[in-house]
Amino acid sequence: MEEKSAKTDWEPRIVGFVCNWCTYAGADLAGTSRLKYPPNVRLIRLPCTGAIDPLFIVKAFQSGADAVLVSGCHPNDCHYTSGNYHARRKLTVFKDLLEFTGLDPKRFWMSWISASEGQKFASFMEEIVTETKKLGPLKGYNN
């Protein structure tokens, strides 16, 4: 019962780690194109997805994120040529580890969104918010 009433005014908190050159710019384009998406996401800008330490993601969940996303340039398009490959390899393994620690892997998202894909960025935010709402708040990760 308590669970349900909490759910009604609950909004998921989503943290995104994105690279400066593609996805951050893609999010900018969503803005300049005046596309609309839910306001649940907070982006943290890094130079490249290769600079995303898995600990950032753990920390985000600990600090109350209900879902975390990582997004950068498409394979082959990384501004630093190979950062997204490092990220892909590392974070794929990391995702399995998250699952092992008891976290639903559906709360961790990875995607490639280029600077010209404003629409894809907006739709992606929409999708994450919808899916995370289905999962409900993340509980017990911090304690």
Binding site: R13, P47, C48, G50, A51, I52, D53, P54, F56, Y80
Partner: peptide, 30 residues
């Protein structure tokens, strides 16, 4: 690009302008 900073197991590489301290502080606000 910061790839090395993430790779270093002893955590002794910092990426100026995007240090772990800076990013963790950002996350802490949540």
């Amino acid at each position: 690009c910061g790839a090395c900073a993430v790779t270093c197991r002893s955590g002794c590489i910092i990426l100026e302008g995007f240090t772990n301290n800076q990013i963790f502080e950002q996350i802490n606000t949540f």
